[in-house]
Each structure stands twice: as structure tokens, then as C-alpha cells.
């Protein structure tokens, strides 16, 4: 199974690549729109800043490729910042327009400790995944939460997760396996 990981000049592409390889998939670093359009599964990974990520995506035409994919009902996974920039907009970097793959916006966390770093239970499943974020989604497409924060959102063929399945040990591997099995 071909998995295209959007390589837009930032982010932890290699970690995501290694996680899919461990599951027997064929991941590739996608820097060209064509790779994103044709893969069985496309992944929008992300760490770093929303502004830089969006600029990197546009520069390579990967934004249009993802929009085409989701319009065609093809499976697409966004991870962490990859979920946040898939929304209509994010508060980060003074306000950045997102891809609009799902409705909603990313807002700065207001909590006891920000960034929110560590393993936290995701409801309703109750499994713990690893989070590292200062912003979180607000979206009607929410399907799972963690301590009241959006952990998973699904809209048409886009699935977004705030946690890092590629760094969440056995629980993360099971999650990515389920993503592959739905393709």
C-alpha cells in the first residue's frame, strides 16, 4: 500500500515514514502534487509553525493536491499541526488561513501547562496517545476528545488526529494499522 507523506520542508516526515514502514506499508516523501494525488493514503504530518507549513505546502502545490483528494473521497490523514492547518483557519502566527479540508479553527490552548506534552487518554476508547501541542482544533467534526480537547476529527474522507500515532508506541501502531485497513 502506497502512503504519500507530504514533505513541505518542515515536520517530522521521517518518524511518520518509519512508523508506516514498520507496518509493512510503502511510505514515500511526497514533494510533488502527483505523488499526493495517486497514493492509496496521503498523510499531512506536522510539527513546527502553521505559517511556515502552509507556505511550504503552497510552494509545492501540495495544498491543491490534498483538496483534490478529499473532493474525490480518497483517504487522507492529518497529524497534529496537519490537523490544525487542515481546518478553515488557525490563530497561530497571528492568524493563518488553512486548507479548509474540514470546518473549524485551531485556537491557542488555555490550560494549566502549555505546551501540553505527554500521554493522555483519548475518549471514548480510553487508550493513551502522545500529545505535544500549544494549539487545538475547534470543529463540529470531532469524534474523540482528550481531557475535553479535540483528539480526533473526521470529515468526509479526511481523518485528523491531534496526537502523534507515530510516537505512541503500540497504541499508535494499532491506530495506524486501522487507518491502513480502511483504505
Amino acid at each position: 500500500m502506497k502512503v504519500a507523506i507530504c514533505a513541505y520542508g518542515a515536520g517530522n516526515v521521517r518518524s511518520v515514514e518509519l512508523a508506516f514502514r514498520r507496518l509493512g506499508a510503502e511510505p514515500c516523501r511526497a514533494e510533488r502534487a502527483e505523488q499526493v494525488r495517486t497514493a492509496d493514503l496521503a498523510v499531512l504530518p506536522g510539527v513546527g509553525s502553521a505559517g511556515l507549513a502552509m507556505a511550504g505546502m503552497r510552494e509545492r502545490g501540495l495544498d491543491e493536491a490534498l483538496l483534490d483528494r478529499v473532493a474525490a473521497g480518497r483517504p487522507t490523514l492529518g497529524i497534529c499541526l496537519g490537523l490544525q492547518i487542515a481546518l478553515d483557519e488557525t490563530e497561530e502566527d497571528g492568524g493563518v488561513a488553512g486548507l479548509g479540508l474540514l470546518p473549524g479553527r485551531a485556537v491557542r490552548l488555555r490550560g494549566d501547562r502549555v505546551p501540553r506534552i505527554g500521554w493522555a487518554s483519548v475518549e471514548p476508547s480510553g487508550e493513551a496517545f502522545w500529545f505535544a501541542h500549544s494549539y487545538a482544533a475547534e470543529t463540529p467534526a470531532t469524534t474523540a476528545t482528550s481531557e475535553g480537547i479535540v483528539a480526533v476529527a473526521e470529515y468526509e474522507s479526511f481523518l485528523g488526529v491531534q496526537f502523534h500515532p507515530e510516537k505512541s508506541g503500540a497504541a499508535g501502531a494499532r491506530f495506524l494499522e486501522r487507518c491502513l485497513s480502511r483504505v
Binding site: S49, L52, A132, S134
Partner: peptide, 8 residues
């Protein structure tokens, strides 16, 4: 922080 994000 501005390139990698504070969380890193």
C-alpha cells in the same frame, strides 16, 4: 521556537 515550535 519560531521554526520548530515551542513543543520541540
Amino acid at each position: 521556537a519560531s521554526t520548530l515550535g515551542s513543543q520541540a
